[in-house]
Design a binder for these strands. Structure first.
Lengths: 203, 203
DNA sequence: GTCTATATGGTGATAGAC
DNA sequence: GTCTATCACCATATAGAC
């Protein structure tokens, strides 16, 4: 976060136009979006959090839409890469699935991407809505593959992928609504317990 | 929606102070909240939709919080009553559960109450957040009872109740994100197919 | 590319007549 | 109880100097 002045090239050409301001604006926006959503985040807040001036914001991002698209796209790309990485690999498919579902999640603010489905500013913008959609369609595809690998017939595998995703997204909603982080764990446990033929039904 | 003037009592006393303005404000707010959330709904919109004047709004509801509390409380009460009614009854517990899960839902705007968990204005207000919480804790209680009736051991019944609720809430998120109403049905189908020992696994 | 004004219009609320 | 008029403030930019 240090404010180093960027050295320019010898002949005046911009050598590594790091666009520090731009990156800091996007980083600040991503954080604020995660905790407040897009619509509730004002340019002022982004400016204050990033420490850059007003002119810089409107230089890099002509309108709020442009900043939002940059920030949301980056978050979608990161999250999707992390999830698909986690769901791929060499271990048995059901192990990977369980690991994904049971991974600890910060439920304090809900899913960074899932919560955007309730954000008017996002859903009424075709490009932003498409980003949100691409995240979930990517996950559906990946999870369907996992269920197929686990031996579930093709038709049912897709349904179970939707169900698994819904468990996580619904888990966020319940945890937030009940102000109880364990709600996510309970939902996941309830689902996972139905996956296997149950060794012994907790008699 | 007709604008009938209310007849007053013979002696000037207000007979059935229907508070038409108040009721119309709450009804308009409920509709707008359902489609845009609370934070994104302005007094102007409520006034325009209800047809009453600005003074009336601030007479009945000194601040935005008061209108929101009235509207959200009413929606929570209605939805909870409908759901518990649906989940109670004489049919076999699993039938009632399936009927609840498979009931057609309007996914266009997400869950009227669940979506409020992403609404900054709601979640940062203790009273509003408590309303949202009471809806879900009521449903958890009701669904747990259903699973117990269905023969699931006490400990596991609670987890499955959370899972069932998560399926519905997550189904709304997926349907919105993917702009595909069938996403909810797929998630529910995936979950329901795991409830029974599966007569024949769609071979 | 970055900054400091400045502008427009809506939000949330108040004042005071009827 | 209901209305119209008005207000201070902030969101979302734009202008133009440096």
């Amino acid at each position: 976060m240090s404010l180093v002045t960027i050295p320019r090239g010898r002949y005046g050409d911009v050598v590594s136009t790091t666009n520090e301001s731009r990156e800091r604006l996007v980083a600040a926006a991503r954080d604020l979006y995660a905790s407040q959503g897009v619509g509730a985040t004002s340019p002022r807040q982004v400016l204050a959090a990033s420490g850059v001036g007003q002119g810089s914001l409107y230089h890099h991002f002509p309108a709020k839409h442009d900043l939002a698209l940059a920030a949301v796209s980056a978050t979608v790309a990161d999250s999707l890469a992390a999830a698909t990485g986690e769901l791929g690999g060499d271990r048995p498919a059901l192990d990977r699935l369980r690991a994904y579902l049971e991974r600890p999640r910060d439920t304090a603010n809900g899913c960074r991407i899932g919560r955007l489905t309730s954000d008017q500013t996002v859903m009424s913008d075709a490009e932003l809505a498409a980003q949100v959609g691409s995240y979930f369609s990517g996950l559906v595809e990946c999870l369907t593959e996992v269920f197929v690998e686990a031996g579930v017939p093709d038709g049912a595998a897709s349904d179970r992928a939707y169900a698994a995703l819904a468990i996580v997204q619904g888990g966020y909603v319940l945890a937030r609504a009940l102000a109880d982080p364990t709600a996510m764990q309970r939902a996941v446990r309830g689902f996972v317990s139905m996956l296997a033929p149950a060794p012994e039904e907790t008699a």
